[in-house]
Design a protein around this nucleic acid. Structure first.
Lengths: 191, 191, 191, 191
DNA sequence: TATGAATGAGGCTTCATTCAT
DNA sequence: AATGAATGAAGCCTCATTCAT
């Protein structure tokens, strides 16, 4: 009997890795980082405790991995073609994208909030957070400058504020928050 | 035991209780609920571990207590005289109050965020949260109705969104967030 | 009911600390450092696992503490009055003391061997070991120099060798090793 | 399957076995038995974890195997031709051999010490140790009897003591221990 | 009222070993 | 013969909570 091929092994690894990550995202979203134990994560993913450490060297490491993957998605969301925002329409589409992403990735954003608003977790991810949050803000800032806003940096902060607010409110009660109408209300400010 | 002595005791008890609560608020704000141990809380408050249980039957109980007291403050903030909002000026003053409260009670709000963004904690406090948040929203809703807004309930949600956003952003980086200018930006929407 | 006095607490602490240490020395002597678990140490000392950490912050820390206390004893043994070795008689008494200490502290020396000959443990104690081993060797070296030995440093190494050998052999089979006669044989070399 | 192929297989098997053993000796020498995991051993030997169990049924089994092979070497060392010690020169050559073996097999002896000083391991190997150590001691004892020593058995113990001591000291700091001079010093006792 | 020693459940992690391929 | 994914027991440690004083 021949041993499994390298490809087969990598296949197994990758699919299990995904399973663990997706499962962990759900758990973290539901209960928060500290409130979920490795045992729970393992059980929820349908693997043994020990196997978790075959894929991630620690609980923190798993968190960082999830964070990085999530951040990559977010970056893509906020600037998919890396061209920046050039006209008003781009900004509107920007808002559109945010709206759709929020709606179709509720769990991901829930996890984002559940995890990253915890001070203890922020300490774990401090470095990563700083690195990632800079770029999207810059892109938006450049747009406002170009458009001749009087206080572009304040306008950026204001938009961030709106994003944060929408996120917070929608996440905390997705069934009742009038997401679409709120997005329209925001659009009305910039139209 | 004379009544005098009894009163004295009560006084001491109450002041120690305050000390524990205030100290705990600081700790929770800085590190989050799960990341702070009873030992740490006791040490930070300058009392023994055992004594903590003399005042609060459990860590959860302490959390609930803090929550309730905080909520009382919030209620007071959003409607100190229970008269509701009657004219535009009231709304502006409303925003003003929020702004000032935020600035002067940073720790309290930090703790609020640190604690509430954790789903596990939210579950513990779910009932309390619902109860408390209803009333201020109603008051604002009534105002918008009276003012003839087309979608008063959306407008309420929008204002909540702004509040949430300001809170989130300010709390996460109080030194750089342009709180005052953002508040002015918001005022400009309603003036 | 009044709380226990500070003295009472310290009394408890000190006596329990001793109990844990003595018990741990026995265990380490019997099975070696890595082969004994904290659970075993706790059970053998008659306390709970958790309490171990009230007294020692980690297993390594316990080891270091035992090492330091043992070393203090050893130092005292090898130079009780800190006067050094001044004449041949001092050296002979030196040997005598070693002999008696060995006989009456078998467990201590067993533990010493069981623990300190393990590379992994040596790494934990590296710093401490270096610090402590210097002084006694110097004292003996000075004596040999004073006595005009041709190669005092070799003579020191030779004596160390004898000590090590006696220790190793005696410890590994205390009932059959002719300790007293070996010590006489050694004395005969220096008389 | 032709006999030729079978032999070839045996050859491969044997060479891989050696590789694993030699690699393990190094690891045990450096870090001690408990401190090295099967994973480490496998990685260091360049084979998979699973394969380790194809050659040795357990970690203990591997240890025992190494011990037995080492012991065979030791026996050979102390009495290569099984003729015993017949004259003083034989004893001196005996010492010589020990000296050279020590110098050229440092790792082996390091492992020997790293492993054997651990009581837990000694228990595993107790029987084997007793069996092996008897014979060389007898040979030396016979020599001392023949030479008319007053207490031949003490003299044997004394020589064992010296061997143990030299081993211990040399192993613990091979770069600084004056091995050659110490051996000369010992020779001087018996010349 | 007040202390801190004491407990034990549960958290994270390691590792010898098994197993499907 | 060979691989490495998978398991689960056991190890170290933390922490909410209890208890004797």
């Amino acid at each position: 009997m021949t041993p499994r091929t390298k490809e087969k092994f990598e296949e197994i690894r990758e699919s299990k890795r995904r399973k663990i990550i997706d499962s962990a995202i759900e758990c973290f979203a539901t209960k928060g980082y500290h409130a979920v134990s490795i045992s729970e994560l393992a059980a929820h993913a349908g693997v043994s405790k020990g196997l978790m450490y075959n894929y991630f060297s620690s609980k923190d490491e798993l968190l960082k991995t999830i964070f990085n993957e999530t951040m990559d998605q977010m970056l893509e969301l906020f600037d998919p073609d890396s061209k920046g925002l050039n006209e008003k329409n781009d900004l509107l589409m920007y808002l559109e994208r945010y709206y759709h992403h929020l709606k179709s990735n509720l769990i991901l954003w829930k996890m984002y909030m559940a995890i990253f608003s915890q001070p203890a977790v922020q300490q774990i991810l401090q470095k990563e957070i700083l690195e990632v949050s800079q770029k999207p803000l810059e892109i938006i800032g450049n747009y406002f400058k170009k458009e001749g806003f009087k206080h572009p940096e304040v306008e950026v902060a204001f938009l961030s504020t709106l994003f944060s607010g929408v996120l917070t409110e929608y996440i905390s009660d997705p069934d009742h928050y009038p997401l679409e109408q709120i997005m329209k209300r925001i659009l009305s400010i910039y139209s």
